[in-house]
Amino acid sequence: MISGIILYAVATIYLVISFIKDKTKTKNALLRSWKMFRNVLPDLLAIMLFVGLVLTLLTPSFISSIIGEQSGLLGIFYSTILGSIALIPSFIVFPLGRTLIQNGAALPQVAVLMSTLMSVGFATLSMEQKTFGRSFAYARNASAIIMSLLFALIIWVVMA
């Protein structure tokens, strides 16, 4: 959690500098921050609960069993769906991927899973829609799925 500590340190330093330079601006900035937080909180709580439920139902051994060496395109399909629905902290994604490989999952399938986990979010789609508009949110997620599939294809050709 070193990045968290750095983040807090940086935020505190800038906040102090800002406060010394201009109290009104700092107050406005914090007011903005609070409003942002309040606006995203309902979505975030729902996202967290949704992900908690999904991850309860999916265990690493279950995932490995459906995206094994013989799973082929169907395995890629499962990985894409799983990765798009679930949402886990990014520093857990790669160690999880490794665990899946050790449990018998195939590399291209795991590559899709990890890539979509980090870039595609069905759970966050409603929040993304409210932020950027519907069309952009859908298009961005679609592009992330395409990226993940192409990435898996490259990995398949080069490394598998």
């Binding site: 959690m1 968290g4 983040l7 807090y8 940086v10 935020a11 505190t12 800038y14 906040l15 800002s18 601006k25 700092t26 406005n28 900035a29 914090l30 007011l31 903005r32 921050s33 609070w34 942002m36 937080f37 975030l44 709580l45 967290m48 609960l49 992900v51 908690g52 439920l53 991850l55 309860t56 902290p89």
Partner: peptide, 30 residues
Amino acid sequence: KAVQLTGKSILDMLLLLPPIFILVGLLDQW
């Protein structure tokens, strides 16, 4: 298990969000 997983990610989020939003707020003003 679901409650534990959810609770942990909510905690993670509540730890991570305040500094990010403070920085965004400051960026907006300055």
